[in-house]
Amino acid sequence: MSVHKKEVKKKVTTHSLLKLKQKGEKISMLTAYDYSMAKIIDGAGIDIILVGDSASNVMAGNETTLPITLDHMIYHASSVVKAVETALVVVDIPFGSYQGDSHKALDSAIRIMKETGGHAVKMEGGAEIKNSIERILSAGVPVMGHLGLMPQSIYKYGTYAVRAKQEEEANKLIEDAKLLEELGCFAMVLEKIPAELAKRVAEAVSIPVIGIGAGQDVDGQVLVMHDMLGINNDFAPRFLRKYANLHEIITDAVGSYIEDVKGRDFPNEKECY
């Protein structure tokens, strides 16, 4: 009599992500900020969960990612990690917690690793944060880079438009991507840059390149969970594909609940003790 064993998915690591790139297999990545949603996403088989500083927008209602603090990020990340069995959990180091001070950067990264149980940190920038990346990596903390549109620098840009369309900025982005690899970053995110440039970067480095609004010729894709599930109904950039319309589903469900309560239909006899 044969016994069917449930397939056990191996834990995703920085090493296994590199293997995926080498094999040409795409990498899937989504954000999560709480236990319940992280459990669902991890159970579905996602490769990477990003505890993004986008929590500042979708969880706290801020206009930008800048207001979220290190303590906030640690709270969200520790909630996510408790739910995860196989995905690699990457945690954004928030604005003001690593720029310009490599010692502060290391302290921030160590707090994240020790207090959340996360597996890696993510930082925005290239040459300008070189010292912070080096110091964090020297402590054995894996770092994911982030180039292109960098939301923590939004007030410098003044717009969320596509980045690196001009040759000078494109060349710097390629140089920064190569630098991130040389420093020892295990992967990087490219946000909202021309697809052709993203392809050049993915071919120029041996580490995985994850895109968001960066075309299909990168090694993987990331979206904000609230956007791709249609919870955040007002956000509809070209790069976003909505896989559900939870805004409508939840609104209808809440409306039905209100109607049943007002109409004395809930709870019924079977729902009472």
Results as ranks from 00 to 15, higher is better:
residue 257 Y to W: 07
residue 181 E to V: 02
residue 239 F to W: 04
residue 238 R to N: 14
residue 222 V to R: 10
residue 214 A to R: 00
residue 188 M to P: 04
residue 177 A to E: 05
residue 186 F to D: 03
residue 168 E to F: 07
residue 234 D to L: 13
residue 185 C to V: 11
residue 208 P to T: 12
residue 166 Q to N: 13
residue 198 A to M: 10
residue 182 E to V: 02
residue 188 M to S: 04
residue 243 Y to M: 10
residue 210 I to N: 08
residue 219 D to E: 02
residue 191 E to G: 04
residue 221 Q to F: 08
residue 157 Y to R: 11
residue 174 I to V: 14
residue 242 K to G: 12
residue 224 V to P: 04
residue 230 G to F: 01
residue 173 L to N: 06
residue 209 V to D: 00
residue 192 K to Y: 06
residue 197 L to F: 05
residue 193 I to C: 03
residue 173 L to E: 03
residue 248 E to T: 15
residue 239 F to A: 07
residue 255 G to L: 05
residue 246 L to F: 15
residue 254 V to A: 01
residue 257 Y to M: 02
residue 240 L to S: 14
residue 220 G to D: 09
residue 168 E to W: 06
residue 220 G to H: 08
residue 191 E to D: 04
residue 162 V to R: 05
residue 196 E to N: 07
residue 163 R to W: 01
residue 217 D to L: 15
residue 226 H to Y: 12
residue 182 E to R: 14
residue 256 S to P: 01
residue 180 L to Y: 12
residue 245 N to M: 06
residue 205 V to K: 04
residue 242 K to F: 03
residue 163 R to D: 02
residue 178 K to Q: 09
residue 189 V to K: 04
residue 246 L to R: 08
residue 183 L to Y: 13
residue 161 A to K: 03
residue 181 E to C: 02
residue 209 V to N: 00
residue 203 E to Y: 06
residue 246 L to A: 09
residue 164 A to T: 11
residue 194 P to G: 05
residue 214 A to E: 00
residue 202 A to L: 02
residue 250 I to G: 03
residue 176 D to M: 14
residue 197 L to M: 03
residue 239 F to S: 04
residue 176 D to N: 10
residue 198 A to E: 07
residue 198 A to G: 09
residue 168 E to Y: 04
residue 246 L to Y: 15
residue 163 R to N: 06
